[in-house]
């Protein structure tokens, strides 16, 4: 296991790595701009957005927020335990993180199923075009995050593992990015109209 000391105060070495942070900024700007445009359309058609928003299940959205926050908490603990050289504990926290992500996926699928059953598709109106696009893109990130988590957890538990702190932190940074995006999506889509 590679555990050399990283100088995080160096501008080129933020926790998770500079490349991961560039990705995080690009993702946040992309989702952020889409949300600002969504709010702009919402101001143009307030009644349509209000009626559409009422058809969303904010309880499911809030439960999903808790799933992602809990999952992020376990992820932070996984990084902490890895740095303390407690590989088994770290691996356990990795699995708990994945469980949180999996529960998010299941609940989101239930929500999507209800929407499709009610005939609500991206073509329904402009609100739902944004709803489907934004939540589906976020969901793809969560699925990608789960794949990265599985791969990293497998790599770190190998007998001759070359997984280092940087790898674990990069994996964690990607996972937390999914939390950050959801924290912006949830209130705008489910609550403010």
């Amino acid at each position: 296991m590679n555990t050399h000391k990283i100088d995080y105060k160096n501008i080129y070495y933020p926790p998770g790595g500079i490349l991961m942070w560039i990705i995080i900024f690009l993702e946040l700007l992309t989702f952020g701009m889409a949300l600002v445009v969504f709010v702009y359309y919402g101001k143009e058609q307030p009644e349509l957005f209000h009626q559409s928003r009422l058809q969303l299940n904010s309880t499911l959205g809030a439960i999903n927020t808790v799933f992602l926050l809990t999952s992020g908490f376990f992820m932070a603990n996984a990084v902490h335990e890895f740095k303390e050289n407690n590989l088994k504990k770290s691996s356990l926290y990795f699995k708990l993180t994945m469980l949180g992500g999996l529960l998010f996926l299941i609940l989101k699928s239930v929500e999507y199923y209800h929407k499709i059953e009610a005939g609500i598709t991206p073509e329904t109106n402009v609100f739902y075009t944004f709803y489907w696009l934004l939540t589906a893109f976020h969901l793809i990130h969560v699925i990608m995050g789960l794949v990265i988590l599985i791969w990293t957890n497998y790599g770190m538990m190998k007998k001759k593992s070359d997984t280092g702190v940087e790898d674990i932190e990069a994996c964690a940074a990607f996972w937390h990015m999914c939390d950050l995006i959801w924290l912006l999506l949830f209130p705008v889509l489910y609550l403010i109209f």
Partner: peptide, 11 residues
């Protein structure tokens, strides 16, 4: 999340 979980406070 960014400052505590992602440890941005150290950056």
């Amino acid at each position: 999340i960014s400052f505590k979980f992602m440890e941005l406070k150290k950056a």
